[in-house]
Design a binder for these strands. Structure first.
Lengths: 150, 150
DNA sequence: ATTTTTGCAAATCATTTGCATATAT
DNA sequence: ATATATGCAAATGATTTGCAAAAAT
């Protein structure tokens, strides 16, 4: 989520209460790099001795997802992960090495989607695109590693 | 999977044994329309009194996925589902109403992917695209329903 | 013969739920 | 005040694992 302000407004607009636990979960998320699992947050909360229960974290994630403050990913491993995000429609590229995520615009996806719709006759109303690869800095690190080990 | 023959070869090529339980699971899959969950197959196996254990089904699904005889989907609901598929790279459109799936070619996705790669600097090596919508026959049924209820 | 697979039951893991209490409005 | 949200512990559900027996090579 980057920062916590959007949360305040989003909750308000949707008529949800701004509670201490929700703010705390939002802060944990804001401090995270890349994607994270519910279990990661549970561990964070425990290690920082915020007295936040497991259920509360799951409930907050569900709510945030609904409010589009967070997006749920399904990693190729099958794990469920989340990434913070604030904007409207977009997708993520996920680094398989460090877990970092980068947002990308809808680049041509719209076109692909409508093309598929026309071809199949489906009325397509949702799509999910997940791209996985190696981010620039991991590529650099890998290259350096090769040199060292050569 | 459509039919079971590809299984025989795929197992052989990869050096796995062609066992009765695996063949049975492949048959259950071939008889399925649209996507299905591991639990669906467990139920099928039980109701047909094939004496196949839960673990075996999970293990077969894992193996088949690895051999690309089956593809794992993550539905928006969060459920894990599978669809049979025999060909190389392709994607699925999933009907949110009846669960039917239709394969689609890579239509422009390659382009989108490389575009994203260029923009972000990621070396993209995998992508997953899932499209959800209403298939033609469900659209027709819905339209009929509207008329009836009007 | 030897190695892989199986079925079972138990273990594990993630996620959800019931409910009395605490908190935000 | 009152409706919503929380924490806990227990329940649920899905998937995995250990292991001795069975089947495939």
């Amino acid at each position: 989520m980057g920062s916590v302000e959007p949360l305040v407004e989003a909750l308000d607009v949707a008529g949800h209460r701004l509670t201490e636990p929700r703010r705390a979960v939002a802060e944990l998320i804001a401090q995270r790099q890349g994607h994270f699992t519910a279990a990661d947050l549970v561990a964070d909360a425990r290690s920082r001795r915020l007295g936040i229960g497991r259920a509360t974290i799951f409930r907050a994630l569900e709510l945030f997802t609904e409010l589009n403050l967070v997006e749920r990913l399904d990693l190729p491993s099958g794990d469920h992960a989340y990434v913070g995000c604030m904007r409207r429609h977009h997708h993520h590229v996920v680094c398989s090495s460090c877990g970092r995520t980068t947002e990308v615009e809808d680049h041509g996806m719209q076109t692909v989607v409508s093309e598929v719709g026309r071809q199949t006759g489906y009325r397509i109303d949702a799509h999910r695109v997940e791209l996985f690869g190696i981010c620039p800095s991991c590529q650099a690190r890998d290259a350096a590693g090769v040199q060292l080990s050569a």
